[in-house]
Every structure is written in structure tokens, then in C-alpha cells.
Design a protein around this nucleic acid. Structure first.
Lengths: 232, 232
DNA sequence: GAGTGTGAAGGCCTTCACAGCT
DNA sequence: AGCTGTGAAGGCCTTCACACTC
């Protein structure tokens, strides 16, 4: 049944949603694809193409109704019932993510954290309780956790991933700088900070070449940066 | 003059390098594409294709000489003279990155940090001195900084990016959850934690559809009992 | 006129498959 | 036999261009 959708479209829909939330707060009742395009750093055609996956929402000379589009994205991206995540490794990066994610969405929530440091265990961090690693299996199973966020040192990552997968998570967000081996059916998104940094450094150097032969520009299409995305 | 190379290849070369460093430490004198492939999570053909960009290095039935391949990647990825970066926003995320990057490479180094918090200013954090934001322009210009790492709240991000670009950086690593507007020739790599998280959640849900039959040795795969509560 | 929805074209990247080497 | 290097094929995604709508 699954309509297949490009991974990149999912990422962009997430971006559009945040732009739309801001627009709605600014009382913008309608929005055009070229406006979204500007804020999201992609072409207008791309925006319309992505929105196609939601079913058609727009009105030809009037753009999209902000709240309607927002609802459609919510329905599409979010689970019908909320999803549960855990975070393993409460270092600076783990703390940053707890700060960033905790309490932000009701439909996608970090339910527990894990760390080897006994000093952190049983404490509340940003409203999230911290447990020893030995509890991973039990808690993931009992609470039916869907997603694991790995912010552990690379030497520990595979072992933790194995435990999470054995306990039934279906997705991993991996910040450790190695590629995890996981069973079929488990989705892994790698956020590789080292690669990202080295990539920026590389293209910062190359960048001078990129004197793009610009279009006969009928109008301000711009989006004048070279653009990357992470992910993976 | 630039040989054009896929962005993804750059990312993967960065991954291969780390794998090779470990292999070299394990005294592996040679390495096959299928070995790299396994550790990097891509196909062997992809590995060979990426290595093509470096010029040919391998010996048909003997694989690649580890140190030779490593040198070639270093030469390709790294600047002939070292590149300099600064980091703006010393919150948890900024600290995590300082920890992660500082002193790790001599050819790519974070030279200064910036924060609005006066308590952090003039202190040394992981060997990196912290300055007030007002110093950005001066320091970036004087030290000829190439890359800026933005770990500031989203409301501050565009303003900081403008200052960095005006002072001459050629690349930005942006962790703020919005798309920056930058002048032509400045490369932006977005690391969008929100998108990544939402993407994992989405595909973790979708993944269940891919119930590929016949996974032999798979025993009790959790998610047992109640199923009505969770479907799509 | 101004914007959306979308088939078709195009481009980038990955995979295939096999020649060639050792 | 086993592995690399690489043209060719394929697939995924983006962009173009235009019919259609208000």
C-alpha cells in the first residue's frame, strides 16, 4: 500500500513544517510555493512536487492555506499515535539533544536516557530520567520504544545498537562515527559530524570555482548558496 | 580545472579515511574494496568508484595498500595548508563539537569560539579561547578563517552568518534549524537535527512494511502481543 | 496575470557486468 | 581464482514547461 516517497522529501517536509509554523504565528493565512521555497532553500517546483505527496492542497492563484497545509504535513509525517524514543549517552551532545527535543512535540518524545555514569543515573535531566545501560532491554521492551538515539562513544555504539535492536526498536539516529550493523527492517540515520565538517572544509576551498553560469533569470530565483544536506 | 566530484563521494571518502586509520592501527597492510565496503556501509562497487576520483591505487588481486590509499585520501580531502574554523555558540552542542574536533586534526582546526555569555568569554574551552560576538569580524579577518560552525539559537543564526560571510568565510556548518541566506560562493552544510529525528521516526514506522519473509535465525522479535495500538 | 499540478526531460549518482591484471 | 577499473545501464530525484485554474 505504501506510496513510496523520496527520503529527501521527508526531510524537506519537516523543514516546511517549521517554516509554516512561523508563518502561522505571523498570521499568514496563505502561502505560495515560492515563499516556502525561499525559506526552505529549495526551488518552488520542488516544493510543489513535495506537496503532491500529501495530496493536492493548493488553489491556483491563491497559494496554499497555511493551516490546511500544516495539518496535512502533520498527518503525513507524524504517527497516528505518538512515538517513543530513548537516548543513550548523556554527554554534551546527548544533553544538547535532550534540550532540543524534550517537550517540543507531544507526538515524538524522548522517554528515557541511559548513561554509564552512575552519578547521572536516577536523576532527571530535562524531565527525562536517566538509567544505567543494563536497563535498556527492559525499558525498551516495556515501553515499546520505537527509536533509539545513539550519542555514545564509537567503541560502545555497536553494542548499544545491538541491544536496542534486540529489544525491538525500528529506527536509530546514530551520532557515533561508524556505520552500524543492524537487522533488516531497522532504519538507521547517520549524523556524521566529522564528515560534515570535512565536507564543508573541502567545498569551502573548492567554492571559488563555482561561478555558476546563471540563468537568463526571468526573475529572482536566486537561492544563491550552494546547498548541502546532511543526513544519512 | 576542478574535477567535479559528487558530494556524496566526499562524505564517503571521509568515512573511508577513518576506517583506514583503524585498519592501519590494526596493522592491516592491504585492504580490499569489499572490506571497506562492509565497514562503511556501502557497496564494493561504490568504494571502487569513489577511489577512482583519487586516481587508481589498487592492485588487481591484492587490493589497496592501506597507507598508500590513506595518503591519497589525505591529499585529496585536506587543504595543502591547514584550514581554520571558528565556532559560534558555546552551548551544549558547541561544547560537544569542541570536544569532538579540538586537537584531532592538525590540518583542520577550531581557532576560536564565540559566545554572548560574558562568563565564558576569555576563558579557554578545550584549548580554544572564547570571545564576545563583537569580535567575530576582527578575528575572522585577521586569522583568515575559512569555516564557521554555527551552534547558536535560530534567532541569532542569520545575523551571525552575515557577519561571518562579510568577514570572508567560505563555508558554514549550520546547526540552526533554518536555512541561511548567504552570498554566492559560500558553501553551507546544514545539519538539521529536527529533520533527522523526524525522518527516523517516519521510516521507523514505514519500516515494518518491509517484512521480508524468511529471516531464518530470528527469534522472539519483541513487539509481540498488542498490535491494534500500533499500525499505520 | 499569477500560481498550482504534473507529464516529460534531464542530471546526478549507484549498480551492473565484464575486461584486464596478477 | 580473485580483485580492480570502468563503460554502460539503471534508478532516483530535480527541474522544465505547460495545461489548467482562479
Amino acid at each position: 500500500m505504501t506510496k513510496i516517497i523520496p527520503e529527501r522529501s521527508i526531510e524537506r517536509l519537516s523543514v516546511y513544517r517549521r517554516v509554516l509554523l512561523q508563518l502561522r504565528d505571523a498570521d499568514a493565512a496563505v502561502v505560495f510555493s515560492h515563499e516556502l521555497s525561499k525559506h526552505a532553500g529549495v526551488t518552488a517546483a520542488q516544493v510543489r512536487r513535495d506537496i503532491m505527496h500529501l495530496g493536492c492542497m493548493g488553489v491556483p492563484n491563491s497559494g496554499y492555506r497555511t493551516s490546511e497545509l500544516l495539518d496535512a504535513i502533520n498527518t503525513f509525517l507524524d504517527a497516528p499515535e505518538s512515538q517513543r524514543a530513548v537516548l543513550i549517552g548523556v554527554g554534551h551532545l546527548g544533553l544538547a539533544l535532550l534540550n532540543h527535543f524534550s517537550g517540543r512535540w507531544r507526538w515524538l518524545h524522548i522517554h528515557a536516557a541511559f548513561d554509564t555514569d552512575a552519578g547521572k543515573q536516577d536523576t532527571l535531566i530535562r524531565g527525562v530520567r536517566c538509567y544505567p545501560l543494563s536497563e535498556i532491554g527492559r525499558i525498551v521492551r516495556e515501553w515499546r520504544i520505537d527509536v533509539g538515539i545513539l550519542t555514545v562513544p564509537k567503541d560502545a555504539a555497536q553494542n548499544v545498537a545491538d541491544r536496542l535492536c534486540a529489544a525491538g526498536v525500528r529506527g536509530l539516529l546514530n551520532f557515533a562515527s561508524l556505520r552500524l550493523q543492524v537487522p533488516e527492517g531497522v532504519y538507521v540515520e547517520n549524523v556524521d559530524l566529522t564528515s560534515s565538517f570535512e565536507k564543508v572544509a573541502f567545498f569551502a576551498r573548492q567554492g571559488s570555482k563555482a561561478l555558476d553560469s546563471s540563468l537568463p533569470c526571468d526573475q529572482a530565483e536566486a537561492v544563491n548558496s550552494v546547498e548541502g544536506t546532511q543526513s544519512h
